[in-house]
């Protein structure tokens, strides 16, 4: 167990350096000039030079990089060119919105992924198998911008069942910021109206986002279920007359879920980075929307901060997955 943790932590340091180095390089080889962006095309030369000096753009490249790395370890990710706020503050503001969306999308994907995975495995090579797999593969085949827009047209435009944008209605009183997750905060203070309202806003985008990850989970659940269903102890239990679904849930699924944890971890990481388009379509005030707007502005401190956060998050999630694996599967503990 300890070697795994040690290796992952070394990996984490590597990733922080690597990702920051690559994004840093990218932000410097590009033709765009952030100082020019701030001053505007008609800004005078003196202001332009002053801003270049302020941003440290006149220093040699390695000095700029060392400065940036110093900042990372003291919690300073630079100042966003677009919002003129510290990038870290911006990310802290927008992170909970993305996290909440990703958590709900994730729950959707796991719930339906495991369910469809089990059904397709038990009903292997029947029409239910094919329907289930077709349904899940559709999720990776629909571009998010398309499925999102279709959902908005149908469920918001035509039927009016769900709100089409944002995290909560404008007239709604915002719950106090405790965790930043509206559904959690509103429950903590007992504001059920806000809870219901924010949950309602979450449904469409989280289904759209979660649907993309569905097929990965279905595939893994199905394959490991097929594996387990062919084991001796399942046959023995069957011969002892246990009912089929009891057996599937109680005996088979438990063991089949262990290898699923790995894909699930990867999915979570993918969701964090993949929320970008969903957030744009649903006008969701999260990090994804923030970074898209920053990209349009060539706001590299913001892009670098976002990428760094996501990449580090990805490595940490993988570490958690490895540890969970050890806890759940005694065989790998040695």
């Amino acid at each position: 167990m300890w070697p795994i943790i040690r290796n992952r932590l070394i990996m984490l340091v590597f990733v922080v350096f690597g990702v920051s180095f690559i994004t840093f390089l990218m932000s410097n080889v590009i033709p765009g000039d952030p100082a020019r962006m701030i001053v505007g095309p008609r800004g005078d030369q003196a202001t332009y030079q002053r801003i270049r000096e302020q941003l440290g753009l006149n220093d040699p490249l390695y000095v700029q990089y060392v400065d940036y790395m110093k900042g990372i370890f003291t919690g300073d990710l630079g100042t966003s060119i677009r919002t003129q706020q510290p990038v870290l503050d911006d990310l802290i503001t927008y992170f909970p919105a993305t996290l909440e969306l990703v958590i709900y999308a994730f729950l959707f994907a796991i719930f339906f992924g495991v369910m469809i995975g089990v059904i397709t495995a038990v009903k292997n090579n029947t029409k239910w198998d094919y329907i289930g797999r077709f349904f899940s593969i559709t999720g990776v085949s629909l571009p998010v911008f398309l499925s999102g827009l279709i959902f908005i047209i149908i469920f918001y435009g035509k039927l009016g069942w769900f709100p089409g944008s944002g995290r909560i209605d404008l007239f709604m009183e915002l719950p106090p910021r405790i965790t930043g997750l509206y559904t959690v905060d509103s429950l903590l203070v007992g504001n059920f109206e806000a809870f219901k309202n924010s949950l309602w806003h979450l449904i469409m985008p989280s289904i759209i986002l979660g649907y993309v990850q569905l097929s990965t989970i279905v595939r893994q659940v199905r394959s490991s279920m097929l594996d387990v269903l062919n084991q001796e102890y399942i046959r023995t239990a069957k011969a002892n007359g246990l009912s089929e679904w009891f057996l599937i849930i109680r005996y088979a699924l438990r063991n089949a879920l262990i290898p699923v944890i790995t894909v699930v971890g990867v999915s979570f990481g993918m969701l964090l980075g993949g929320a970008v388009v969903t957030e744009m379509i649903f006008n969701w005030p999260g990090m994804g929307k923030y970074v898209v707007e920053s990209i349009g502005f060539l706001d590299f401190p913001a892009i670098m901060g976002f990428t760094l956060l996501i990449s580090v998050g990805y490595v940490i999630i993988n570490l958690i997955v490895d540890l969970l694996y050890i806890v759940l599967d005694p065989r790998v503990r040695e």
Partner: peptide, 22 residues
Amino acid sequence: RMMDIMLAFPPLVLAMALTAAL
């Protein structure tokens, strides 16, 4: 290790940042 670093990047964001920059 280099590839691990690249895999930790969110692909769409990397693609978007690259195309925006270039």
